[in-house]
């Protein structure tokens, strides 16, 4: 983009960020302008670094600085389960529960024909390659033997479509495929739970 006025240029670029409108962008721009030069230099450096240094893990497509992400490199993780998630923030959410000891696979999106996103636009090919066994250039200490894939896409229409698609792909390969449950939030009041969630929870109830 070419523009004669650097301030307008900065405002335009800032307002491309999610959740930032033109007014906030302008406030941020003038804030940066009024701060010592150091702030702007550091910020610029961080911004370039994040794009230069962060890439995708060669195995699970998580964001990482090296060839493989820290989860894939961790020898203590179980090597028989993969949890498939939509995005890196979703991975972090599941990781923060501390419940899951296997490894992940990040799709970087959900199937949505409306937005022109088909299966080829997601990291599905990488997942299939993983399931077919070790790649030549992989370090032997992180070799895996996957028996179960857990689909942890969100319970939206797109999330369901993506998980259905993967199920149809993976089941014939003889792999156990499971889907995260959806239901009533812990610690909440039934009375205030929205009806869709409640009817889903009833439908997917389990025997005690």
């Amino acid at each position: 983009m070419k523009t004669a006025d650097p301030i307008t240029d900065l405002i335009n670029n800032l307002s491309k960020l999610p959740g930032i409108g033109e007014r906030t962008a302008s406030r941020l721009a003038f804030f940066i302008l009024n701060q010592p030069e150091e702030l702007a230099k550091n910020l610029a450096e961080s911004l370039t670094n994040v794009k230069d240094k962060i890439g995708l893990c060669k195995r699970c497509c998580n964001l990482t600085e090296g060839d493989y992400c820290s989860i894939c490199m961790n020898v203590k993780r179980d090597r028989d389960k993969i949890c498939v998630v939509e995005s890196a923030p979703d991975l972090r959410a599941i990781e923060n529960t501390g419940e899951f000891r296997g490894t992940y696979h990040v799709l970087h999106g959900l199937i949505s024909p409306l937005e022109g996103i088909g299966p080829d636009d997601l990291r599905i090919a990488e997942l299939l390659r993983r399931l077919q066994g070790a790649q030549e250039d992989e370090p032997p200490e992180i070799a895996e033997d996957i028996t179960e894939v857990i689909l942890a896409t969100s319970p939206s229409v797109d999330g369901e479509a993506t998980s259905l698609y993967l199920t149809r792909l993976l089941k014939p390969m003889g792999i156990k495929v499971s889907r995260i449950a959806s239901g009533v939030p812990i610690g909440s009041d039934l009375e205030y739970t929205d009806r869709m969630t409640l009817s889903r929870a009833l439908l997917e109830r389990r025997e005690l």
Binding site: I111, S112, P113, L114, G116, G118, P119, V157, D158, A161, L164, Y165, R168, L169
Partner: peptide, 21 residues
């Protein structure tokens, strides 16, 4: 809406994807 977009779009011969919708 998604299914209509799929039928109109470039993936409309992807039988696996259509089966999902």
């Amino acid at each position: 809406k998604q299914r209509n977009a799929l039928l109109k779009g470039p993936h409309n011969s992807d039988r696996k994807l259509l089966a999902v919708y």
